[in-house]
Nucleic acid binder design. Structure first.
Length: 272
DNA sequence: AGTGCGACCCGAACGC
DNA sequence: TGCGTTCGGGTCGCAC
């Protein structure tokens, strides 16, 4: 389940492998992934070259001549690099074939990921991109900014951390970890949060994302032979999926709850 | 405007 | 064993 750290790892790995290669064909096996008109999608990509790969929030942005290919992996999207002769595997939905007879293959068991082509000057007209808030690693993420965004909200903090228009890039796993690190209850309403707690949330977000990115980078090195390009997150989780285990800080049993439909793990004793 | 929730998918986990 | 059911994850879009 890719979050910002996994997306960053995929970006760095693909940059080393596909930049400068000319696309000679695009095979669309499952078309609902693609939001752009399919003929237009193929016509723009064939003959084109990926010249850079950027990231905005959880979106991968592949740079082309005049367009960007925007790709969101959602939960299970992955990119594989394979030789073109290899048979198409289950769950491979979009295949970009380069002139050197290698493929970039988009693999997604849940078919939830999305791709779209936009003209470069229209990147920020794309809804998902336009709405992104500030990233945890950006110095513009201040306690004052967070306090201002949270202070009138009747929603629980868990929900607010998942809102990409406030903090860009936190997913369900890291939201739990951030709240644990900041010692803030996931149930606490935005309107009840203090400036001091915003400072803790800001620091925890940055710390956890930076750690996750470095872990993702470590993990990927074991993938060189199989070519599965994904940054699987490490099991350094203190609360997420730790239900029933003792809290590493106080020994209380980690609890699980649903908050606005999202599974949430927390320590009742540490998080107030 | 703010909030709540179903839809999109399908493999894994669970219940019988 | 084998079947059917439930769950989960990020985002969108619709309902209130």
């Amino acid at each position: 389940m890719p979050e910002i750290a996994e997306v960053e790892t995929v970006r760095n790995t693909l940059k080393k492998r596909i930049l400068g290669k000319k696309i000679k064909d695009v095979n669309i096996i499952y078309s609902k992934i693609i939001e752009t008109d399919l003929n237009e999608f193929k016509n723009i990509l064939i003959g084109n070259t990926f010249s850079n790969i950027k990231r905005i929030g959880k979106y991968l942005i592949f740079e082309l001549d005049e367009h960007y290919l925007i790709s969101h992996l959602r939960m299970e999207g992955k990119y594989f690099l394979k030789n073109s002769e290899e048979p198409i595997a289950k769950h491979e939905h979009i295949i970009f074939t380069f002139t050197d007879n290698t493929d970039l293959r988009y693999h997604d068991t849940r078919k939830f990921g999305r791709m779209a082509l936009v003209l470069k000057e229209h990147l920020y007209d794309y809804e998902g991109i336009k709405k992104q808030g500030i990233e945890p690693i950006d110095d513009k993420l201040t306690k004052e900014y967070l306090f201002d965004k949270f202070k009138k909200k009747m929603l629980p903090m868990k929900t607010l951390l998942l809102d990409q228009t406030i903090i860009s890039g936190l997913g369900n796993i890291y939201a739990d970890e951030v709240l644990f690190d900041a010692q803030v209850s996931p149930f606490k309403l935005g309107k009840d949060i203090t400036l001091e707690e915003c400072e803790k949330i800001k620091n925890a977000s940055k710390k956890i994302i930076l750690k996750a990115i470095s872990e993702g980078g470590t993990t990927i090195r074991s993938y060189t032979s199989s070519l599965g390009v994904t940054g699987r997150f490490q099991q350094y989780l203190k609360v997420h999926k730790q239900e029933g285990k003792p809290c590493i800080e106080c020994g209380s049993i980690i609890k699980k709850a649903k908050i606005n439909g999202r599974s949430t793990y927390y320590c009742e004793n540490c998080q107030k």
